[in-house]
Amino acid sequence: MSIEMNDSNATKFVNWIIEKGVDGISPLSSANDLALEYKIDQGYENDDERVDSLINWETSKNFTSGFITGLGGIITLPISIPSALGASWVIQARMAGAIAHIYGHDLHEDRVRTLVLLSLLGDAGKEVIKSAGIKFVQKITEKTISKISGKALTEINKKIGFRLITKAGEKGIVNLTKFVPVAGGMVGGTFDAVACRMVGRTAKNLFAISSGSSLT
C-alpha cells in the first residue's frame, strides 16, 4: 500500500481521528458522553476506579470479533489506509478522550487533544515530544504540554500523523506488533484487546498525573 507522506495528509489524518474519536461517529457516542456514563455512577470510590472500569469494559465490548470491521465499513477515511485500522484508532481516541474528561480535562482544548493523540503512541509519544524540541524529565504531562506554543502543538500533531501513516503504509496491520498501540492479530475482524488496554493505561497515566490524581 502506497500512501503519499506529506504534511497535509498527516495533519488531515490526526484531525480526522480527533474529530471522529472525541466528537463521535455513529454508532459511537462522543468521548464526553462516554465519560458521563461513568461519572454519574456513584458506585465507584474515585475516578481511578471509573477509568479502570471504562478501560476493561471498552476493551471487551469494542474489540470483539467483527466490531471494528463493521465500524470500518461505514467510515470514510481521509487517506488510503485499511478501514479497520482507522476504526481502531478512532475507538482508542474515544476511550482516551473519555479518560481525559473523567479526570476533569476539557476536550475542546488543543493541548488536551494533543495528549489524546499522544496516548495512541504509548512510549513512542516521548520520541515525538523530543523530536519537536521539547524537553521533559520522565513523564509527558499536561504541565509539559501547557508550555508548548500553538505552533509547536501543530507540529507535534503532524509528527503523530506521520508515525501512524508510516506504520499503516509500510508495515501493514500484522507487522505492527512492536508499535504501540497496534498489536498484531487483526485477523477476520478480531483486534488484539491487549492493544486497547495499553492505550487506556497510557491515557490514564497522562491524564491522572496531570490532574493531580494519585495512581496505584
Rank of each mutant, 00 (worst) to 15 (best):
R163A: 11
T141N: 08
I165K: 08
S83A: 13
A195P: 00
L36K: 15
V112C: 11
I99G: 06
P82R: 14
S26C: 02
V128R: 08
F179Y: 10
S119A: 15
S30R: 05
F136P: 00
N6T: 04
M198A: 15
D192E: 07
L71V: 12
A100L: 12
G122R: 13
I134E: 03
I55F: 01
F63P: 06
H108G: 15
S29I: 11
G169M: 09
T76K: 13
A203R: 01
L153T: 02
V194M: 07
S211I: 02
E58C: 13
Q138M: 10
T64C: 10
S80A: 14
K20N: 15
N175G: 10
G150Y: 07
S146G: 03
R201P: 00
F179H: 07
E37I: 04
R201S: 10
H108C: 03
Q138W: 03
L107R: 05
I145L: 12
M186F: 14
I25C: 05
L77A: 13
I40Y: 08
R197S: 14
R201A: 09
K135L: 10
G189C: 14
E170V: 15
W57C: 00
G125P: 02
E45S: 10
G86F: 07
T114W: 01
L115K: 00
I129E: 03
I173T: 05
T177V: 12
G86S: 08
A152D: 10
D7S: 12
A152W: 00
K151N: 10
N175Y: 14
I165E: 07
N157G: 09
S26R: 07
V174L: 13
I173H: 00
S213F: 14
K159W: 00
R94V: 07
D106M: 09
L34V: 09
W16F: 15
